[in-house]
Design a protein around this nucleic acid. Sequence first.
DNA 1: CCGATCTTTGACAACGGTTCTCAACAAGCG
DNA 2: CGCTTGTTGAGAACCGTTGTCAAAGATCGG
Lengths: 131, 131
Amino acid sequence: MAARMTRQRTAVVEALDEMADFRSAQQLHEALRARGESVGLATVYRALQALAEASEVDVLRAEDGESLYRRCARREHHHHLVCRMCGRTVEIDGPTVEAWASKVAAAQGFDDIEHTIELWGTCADCRAAAR
Amino acid sequence: MAARMTRQRTAVVEALDEMADFRSAQQLHEALRARGESVGLATVYRALQALAEASEVDVLRAEDGESLYRRCARREHHHHLVCRMCGRTVEIDGPTVEAWASKVAAAQGFDDIEHTIELWGTCADCRAAAR
DNA sequence: CCGATCTTTGACAACGGTTCTCAACAAGCG
DNA sequence: CGCTTGTTGAGAACCGTTGTCAAAGATCGG
Ligand SMILES: [Zn+2]
Ligand SMILES: [Zn+2]
Ligand SMILES: [Zn+2]
Ligand SMILES: [Zn+2]
């Protein structure tokens, strides 16, 4: 279980690094193919889940259920504000909510608390463009 | 588009009313079949999406992507604290987060803000049972 | 009631994202 | 180099969900 470094794995990481916003496994796969650095789809999925496991990428569920991946600048726990039109992403830091979430859950006798907090909106650029 | 009242639709609503926790379409379908009030699976899906559309039920995405439905007591906007083992659900009211979410998003110049906030944990009963 | 109309139903096929399979392949190592 | 063992990839399988379309039934004017 040595986690070998292969052409495919580095290719996926590089592709992610060039993407500013959340992308699906299939979009990554397509992007790799387009640049000639072809990688099997199953391999892209495996690489992404390994990266997610290691907290190297963040995962987000689109409304249709598809998983979206992003290599965030921040390594620590954080949340996202995502433009639902163009995908522009802002990393959010929420000490307020963190405290709120664990307090509320503990008050109900729950343990091993996790939370899903994502913000969706329309960014200034998209609003201007839609005018 | 008159929304006719049929045996199947009332059956789905009744089943939901008897369920305290979030349930999948397939679980509902099975429950209906078990009680003899059989309804086609596609019909269960259609009834649920109509109810969700009308804000009569809340929809939640499980970690594996499956959609879960629940008829909450509260009709107004709220969130949920869900036991990831047994599904026990507590409705959560978060004036704190509501304010935080819109403030943060506005500060980034985003509009039409929506948020997804769900809490997951292990309830006291399940923790005791797992001992 | 009765039949015309038009929505709803349900068995089954199709869909789409994700995971599995397994033989061929290639890191890493001495 | 060869060996060992993790990795790859084409295609099949999986599974929740949605589409199909002929048959069933809710609604209503007459
Ligand atoms: Zn935008
Ligand atoms: Zn958090
Ligand atoms: Zn529980
Ligand atoms: Zn809220």
